[in-house]
Design a protein around this nucleic acid. Structure first.
Lengths: 154, 154
DNA sequence: CTTCAAGTTAAAGTAAGCTTTAAGTCAATA
DNA sequence: TATTGACTTAAAGCTTACTTTAACTTGAAG
């Protein structure tokens, strides 16, 4: 049991729930950092747990590691992130979550009307068939904002 | 301009928005089927457009092709799917959408309280740190139902 | 008939997000 | 000190969902 202020890989792994291979991967991807022991083993600061917590939460909401890296870059480079720093990025992120919820609601409501008609396709259904015939993806996809949109045909 | 009841690859591609390579892939994955011309070229029935519409809509909501295949398997094997058949699977799917929305809302609300405290981690924050110390993933993840849950550490 | 866009196949490539493997080193305990 | 579990690296492997490539064939228009 150690009460030190540096953590080993296994401690971070256990406490964060990430496999050590994931921790190494995140380090390579520059999402987290680690110092080294005399013998070359990784030593983490406690703060890494908070970063990892954010990484998991963000990826649960569907952010890519690339996006997460960007979010994390809003944290100060030099000083230890304060409560206010975290709040800033969390609030930013909250907006995304709201967007995603709204997107799904629009989709659901569109689907709702589809259940009524049973079509789910062809010219009439904008949810599923955004660019057949006259309709373009852009118009049809009004229901689906960018956060959830997948371009048609790839 | 052809008014036939069979469609070529390029027609289906244009009308569905899927690349022909994707159509071939879906056929290999048994999500759609096609008959063949004398010379061995694919000929699609019109109904494939509806299937493709469903595939796009479902994948937009985050279903994997595996899950989509399962959904599609609810359609009748022999007869052409009726409006009622489509309604059955659409309704089933609507439930999923609602689950997903609820999941995001819980997440957002949890995050909301996190904005208040600025923690986003460690023992107190169930959103981001579901299994540190005493907390288990299962308990912590009460906020995150299965549809959105990613197991920690992989 | 010729021509050429459209179609065919198998196989390899891509991107994300990690895990696994292999072969070897560190560090804490007995 | 000897052991053993924890750790190290580079590189390859995995899964999903497709796309790209290469080399060749169909089929419809002129």
């Amino acid at each position: 049991m150690d009460t030190h202020d540096v953590l080993t890989v296994s401690e971070v792994s256990r406490r964060s729930g990430f496999a050590s291979s994931a921790l190494r991967y995140y380090e390579a991807e520059e999402l987290i950092t680690a110092s080294r022991s005399a013998g070359g083993q990784r030593r983490y600061e406690r703060a890494v747990l908070r970063r990892l917590a954010f990484i998991r939460a963000a990826s649960n909401v569907g952010l890519t590691l690339d996006e997460i890296r960007t979010e994390l870059s809003r944290l100060p480079d030099r000083r230890t992130p304060t409560k206010a720093d975290w709040q800033k990025i969390t609030r930013h992120w909250y907006g995304r979550l709201n967007e995603q919820i709204a997107a799904l609601e629009r989709l659901r409501d569109g689907l709702d009307s589809c259940i009524g008609c049973g079509c789910l396709s062809l010219k009439r259904c904008a949810i599923s068939n955004p660019r057949d015939v006259a309709a373009t993806w852009t118009t049809g996809a009004a229901l689906l904002p960018a956060v959830l949109r997948r371009p048609p045909g790839r």
